[in-house]
Amino acid sequence: MNKIDVFTLGETMVLFQAEQMLPLEYVHQFPKQIGGAESNVAIGLTRLGHSVGWASKLGNDPFGRYILKYIRGEGVDTSSCLFTEKAQTGIIFKERLSPEDVNVYYYRKNSAASFMEPADLNEQYIAQAKILHITGITPALSESCYQTVLASIDIAKRNNMTIVFDPNLRLKLWSAEQAKEVFNEIATHADVILPGLDEGQFMTGKTEVEEVAEALMGDADKTIVIKLGSKGAYFHTKNEKAYVAGFPVSQIVDPVGAGDGFAAGILSGLLRNERLETVVKRANAIGAMVVGVSGDVEGLPTLSAVERFMDPISGSRDVKR
């Protein structure tokens, strides 16, 4: 059994991204890539030097085999992934009307991943990890997926793992009422919560950044990190709170996946036991790097690359010529 630092689970789809900035009906070429919040984070973490296990259920079809090979090829442990004959692997199309105007079209209803169930989880395997990473996408896929997320939380709590929750609100998958109820249920169990400001406002009904963080924290000892886009992020714990500025981006190529890169940066810093301000700063840098590259995972950096991005002058001295 492979030793892992982080365990995550969720759906990854085959991603067809339009090559041209046009409405989809006028696009004729779509390179094949992958897209999935949890696998994005898993790949981001492996590039930062960590060992990650990712679990899902894939269709026993060419797309399912492609996804497994791709993610395994990035160094992620996929030994917990299962194949099913019941359904096909999900597909997503990405439309780019401009660098800032990106639309996604899902073909994932009753997909293979929606058949994940608690019995698919291997507690002995999961329990060796330090962190459980979950998003709000997986419980939206089906009732059995929701129960699988709850089962993974139970495993994490029994084994003293840190639970990190990234809401990743997708209202195309379920109603706002359902999402809010489940998000807040999961948040009560989470040790670290990573919402965007709009997601935090959605969950709490509060408007201001500090009020959102306080509401999410409640009376518990949690770490709240709120993503603020180009402005950076705000973190709030029992003992400290601060805004951390973002990094300037000269050109936005593809904003999708930046939040997953940010999450990978946070998890990496937690595993390294770094100061929270340092952790958030690096996460901001990774998010800025990801938006400059087309694709969900293609822009995720190595640790040395992000350090050079954060400090290009001193970082360039370390490059051997």
Results as ranks from 00 to 15, higher is better:
residue 213 A to N: 10
residue 253 V to R: 03
residue 229 G to Q: 08
residue 187 A to D: 12
residue 183 F to L: 08
residue 148 T to M: 01
residue 190 A to W: 11
residue 236 H to K: 11
residue 215 A to S: 15
residue 172 K to C: 08
residue 156 A to F: 06
residue 153 I to N: 01
residue 239 N to A: 12
residue 224 I to C: 02
residue 148 T to A: 08
residue 157 K to L: 07
residue 223 T to K: 06
residue 241 K to L: 08
residue 205 G to T: 11
residue 192 V to D: 04
residue 199 E to N: 12
residue 242 A to H: 05
residue 163 I to F: 07
residue 231 K to A: 14
residue 152 S to D: 03
residue 254 D to Y: 05
residue 230 S to L: 07
residue 161 M to C: 03
residue 175 S to M: 01
residue 207 T to W: 03
residue 229 G to F: 02
residue 192 V to H: 06
residue 174 W to S: 13
residue 239 N to G: 00
residue 179 A to L: 09
residue 164 V to G: 07
residue 154 D to A: 13
residue 238 K to Y: 03
residue 176 A to W: 03
residue 215 A to C: 13
residue 200 G to F: 07
residue 223 T to H: 01
residue 168 N to W: 02
residue 206 K to G: 04
residue 206 K to H: 13
residue 220 A to T: 11
residue 154 D to K: 13
residue 253 V to D: 03
residue 207 T to G: 00
residue 222 K to D: 01
residue 187 A to L: 10
residue 226 I to T: 05
residue 150 L to M: 15
residue 229 G to P: 05
residue 255 P to N: 06
residue 195 P to C: 06
residue 248 P to F: 10
residue 193 I to C: 07
residue 185 E to K: 15
residue 164 V to N: 04
residue 202 F to Q: 12
residue 216 L to V: 06
residue 198 D to N: 14
residue 184 N to Y: 10
residue 187 A to E: 10
residue 187 A to R: 11
residue 218 G to K: 10
residue 178 Q to D: 14
residue 154 D to P: 00
residue 169 L to W: 00
residue 178 Q to V: 05
residue 203 M to L: 13
residue 237 T to I: 02
residue 196 G to W: 06
residue 189 H to R: 14
residue 187 A to N: 15
residue 188 T to H: 14
residue 200 G to N: 04
residue 239 N to S: 11
residue 208 E to Q: 15
residue 250 S to Q: 13
residue 240 E to V: 02
residue 199 E to Y: 09
residue 154 D to V: 07
residue 192 V to G: 09
residue 227 K to I: 03
residue 222 K to F: 00
residue 149 V to I: 14
residue 226 I to R: 12
residue 222 K to H: 09
residue 239 N to E: 12
residue 243 Y to H: 13
residue 167 P to N: 02
residue 203 M to I: 12
residue 220 A to Q: 15
residue 248 P to C: 05
residue 253 V to W: 05
residue 209 V to I: 14
residue 254 D to N: 11
residue 231 K to I: 01
residue 201 Q to S: 14
residue 148 T to F: 04
residue 209 V to T: 15
residue 236 H to S: 06
residue 235 F to C: 01
residue 155 I to C: 08
residue 190 A to T: 11
residue 159 N to Q: 09
residue 168 N to H: 07
residue 246 G to N: 06
residue 248 P to M: 09
residue 251 Q to D: 12
residue 186 I to T: 06
residue 180 K to D: 02
residue 223 T to D: 00
